[in-house]
């Protein structure tokens, strides 16, 4: 019998499709709830979401709190936040995980503020630690300088809330045999509660291969500035049929667009091959590709932290190395 305050995951749906990050969080949620011996429960807000609830149970949810209302089909910030906050007050979950999509990042802080608890943004790992025999959620985020990570805790307030970016956690295996319970909740929602009203949601197709879906990604950083610019990264990517990404400074230099940014405030990707060019390797960047299959880093500074997270480190002057590398790859690819 599972006792104690449950682990919750808010699972976002858009146009009645589950967002991948919610499923990824269920995998982590299951691990945490088993460790605490409590239930894993999800909150699903939308309209006609029965099929999605079945899917959530197949991914590990013991309970799905289902809030269905035609007015809630699309994200509505005030009402979604009110519904979630009321459920928290009623059921006192110990942990609440929210996927850091643009909508999740809009919702999570509003809810945390309503129930006056702590919220840690963009965790790269979550686990249960103990303090004098009392378990708590350890929330890991990248730190400053070299390869440092920071462990954040929320010692007194509950729930312990954290957001995680899409792609950071692995998607769990689906098990159709898994059983769970659907609890339908019908909150009293008045039309006047929609102070902000979402009147339209438009989903657009990506131009080209999005970096999170590419098998090979070449990313550039600040070191390219003194080495004559970003062009060699694009040439290298072309030879490899790779997508192009980069660091925050590369975005600031307008070498790449926002949706090509990798790391803490950008995307987390897991390609088969990741090549970093001219990036020193701050944790804010490296946490965005740590689960790649093979990582190669190219930089002129042999002591750069980037080499500590790489399989292959190529050291030298970028202006000399890159033309050779492009030529060599043309011969073998």
């Amino acid at each position: 019998m599972k006792r104690g305050n449950p682990v919750w995951v808010w699972t976002e749906q858009r146009n009645n499709r589950l967002m991948d990050v919610g499923v990824e969080l269920l995998g982590k949620g299951l691990e945490l709830s088993e460790r605490l011996n409590v239930k894993l429960e999800t909150i699903l807000i939308g309209n006609q979401t029965g099929k999605l609830a079945d899917e959530l149970m197949a991914y590990g949810a013991d309970t799905v709190y289902m809030i269905e209302d035609p007015r809630l089909q699309t994200y509505q910030s005030d009402v979604y936040a009110n519904v979630l906050a009321d459920l928290i007050r009623e059921h006192s979950p110990d942990i609440l995980l929210i996927g850091a999509t643009n909508i999740g990042m809009d919702l999570a802080p509003r809810v945390a503020s309503k129930v006056e608890t702590g919220l840690t943004a963009h965790c790269v790992d979550l686990c249960i630690d103990e303090d004098n025999g009392i378990p708590y959620l350890a929330q890991v985020v990248p730190g400053w300088g070299g390869n440092l990570m920071v462990k954040i805790v929320c010692p007194e307030k509950r729930p312990q809330m954290a957001t995680v970016r899409p792609g950071v956690l692995e998607k769990p295996a689906r098990n159709e045999a898994r059983k769970g319970e659907i609890i339908k909740v019908t909150p009293d929602i008045k039309d006047g509660d929609f102070k902000v009203k979402t009147i339209e949601m438009v989903e657009e197709k990506a131009l080209g291969i999005p970096i999170e879906e590419a098998d090979t990604v070449v990313a550039g950083g600040w070191g390219l500035f003194s080495a004559g610019g970003f062009k060699p990264v694009e040439e290298l990517a072309e030879v490899l049929g790779a997508a192009v990404g980069g660091t925050r400074p590369a975005v600031d230099k307008e070498w790449i667009s926002d949706d090509q940014m990798i790391g803490q405030s950008g995307k987390t990707i897991n390609p088969k091959l990741f090549i970093s060019v001219g990036a020193s390797g701050a944790m804010h960047f490296t946490t965005g590709f740590l689960r790649s299959k093979v990582i190669m880093a190219i930089d002129q500074n042999p002591d750069a932290p980037i080499f500590k997270v790489s399989d292959i480190g190529l050291v030298g002057d970028l202006r000399e190395i890159l033309p050779y590398l492009i030529e060599e790859l043309k011969n073998v690819v």
Binding site: E116, T117, G118, L119, T120, A138, G143, G146, N147, L148, M149, V150, K151, I152, V153, C154, P155, E156, K157, M283, T286, L290, K308, V309
Partner: peptide, 13 residues
Amino acid sequence: SPTRVADVFEHKS
């Protein structure tokens, strides 16, 4: 602040 820094540690790859 509801949240605290509990520890700073080196990422081991």
